[in-house]
Design a protein around this nucleic acid. Structure first.
Lengths: 223, 223
DNA sequence: CAGTTGCGGAGCGAATCGCTCCGGTATAGC
DNA sequence: GCTATACCGGAGCGATTCGCTCCGCAACTG
């Protein structure tokens, strides 16, 4: 986290604040949607607005940084999933990780942040790894054959945004958060079981086209 | 839909507008969240702001009416599910119906509308029917035994809010809506398969307590 | 044509927005 | 302990958006 930006007398505090800001932004975005205000983010992080604007020149810059970090997390989880010796555990672990570290909280700002070539490359790389994970699980016969990588992406997105969790946080019921996370873990497990190759009835309709997922997150190639 | 409120010379137009307003409110709430503005709702419905305020005295009154209608839809779907001769098809049909008619779009305003005693009664009735549906499916051996009615409620809520669909609508890509609905249907089918009694591994953790669902939708009994 | 009823939207005061700017505070070196 | 400095918090700016009111107009009936 120490990227050398802070070299002053209160470096530790600055970096702690930066970290708090990013996490607060995720939470506020999840509960307030795209209209999340910088004041709300700063307040949730427990820092002043001034500190936010010292680190990020605009609100959009903060959101862009958030997107970039999310892409990194996605890719790290994907690499780990592919590296796992058990094909099914690798896929399940990847899905669970993506859902739980709040990937879905960025849905409200998808399509509003400028996509840098670097982000584009990371995104493409992530897609490739996911495709490999899915292909491996299918090849091992543990994944229902009609499941596509896009199905998995959409499933992660769907599970990632948790209206339950958002609402609990908005009401300030921190005492319920743990139970809500546990409850969602059950839903994740249910959905993952639905992906397994033990079912007889085919899924309805043809697989969704890639554009469903792609076109919304990346408006245009920055090429 | 003719409830006698309009007896004037342009009754038909008024009732058509009312219907359009309710549907528009659902869509705008889904994409803008709790901050959805009356102007946006009126614009989406294709009517003037004045018409909205002639029908509903305040924004909250509109949202309350929306909640009441949602409860009715929920209960109708539940009755139908319980009446179905096949226990599994009844449960699956209920879940699918609730997800697809946009139950989830109300998540952003949950906990902000005043709960009338009438709504409270309807809500309780709906819970009872759902419990009966779940009990019947479990008794028939077609539902994994550890699934509770609260699991089903949370699953409906989770699937009902579709970040994918919301984003597509926000971007005005009406051409993608149909594909998105079809893609979500696949996710519903996957989740439903995960509920079936054909699995070996138990779900993680204990079942979620009822309060997880109940306490957020109904702040306090209006007793 | 006269009478009635619902329609659309300009515009009100209040609230909130993103963002700037600066006085204050904590810390490292002496 | 003192000074210099790097970072902090939040009052407040102009602009925007909010929920809502009000009224001139259009559409329909008899």
């Amino acid at each position: 986290m120490s990227d050398g930006r802070y070299r002053g007398r209160r470096q530790a505090e600055a970096e702690r604040n930066d970290h708090a800001l990013l996490q607060a932004a995720r939470e506020v975005l999840a509960s307030d949607g795209a209209h999340a205000s910088v004041a709300a983010i700063a307040a949730r992080a427990g820092v002043g607005i001034g500190s936010l604007y010292r680190r990020y020149r605009t609100k959009e810059e903060l959101f862009q940084r958030l997107s970039e970090l999310a892409l990194d997390q996605w890719n790290v989880a994907a690499e780990a999933g592919l590296a796992h010796e058990d094909p099914w555990a690798g896929l399940a672990g990847f899905v669970t990780a993506c859902v739980e570290f709040g990937q879905g909280s960025l849905a409200p700002i998808a399509g509003t942040v400028d996509v840098t070539p670097e982000m584009w490359a990371k995104s493409t790389r992530g897609d490739e790894i996911l495709a490999a994970i899915v292909a491996r699980a299918r090849g091992a016969g543990v994944l229902r054959p009609e499941i596509t990588p896009t199905d998995v992406s959409l499933l992660i997105e769907q599970l990632g945004s948790s209206p339950m969790l958002d609402q609990i946080r908005k009401q300030g019921r921190e005492d319920l958060v743990e139970a809500a996370v546990a409850a969602r873990r059950r839903l994740i497990a249910i959905a993952l079981d639905g992906l397994r190759a033990v079912h007889s009835e085919p899924l309805p309709g043809p697989p969704p086209g890639d554009h469903l997922f792609t076109e919304r997150w990346r408006r245009d190639s920055p090429a």
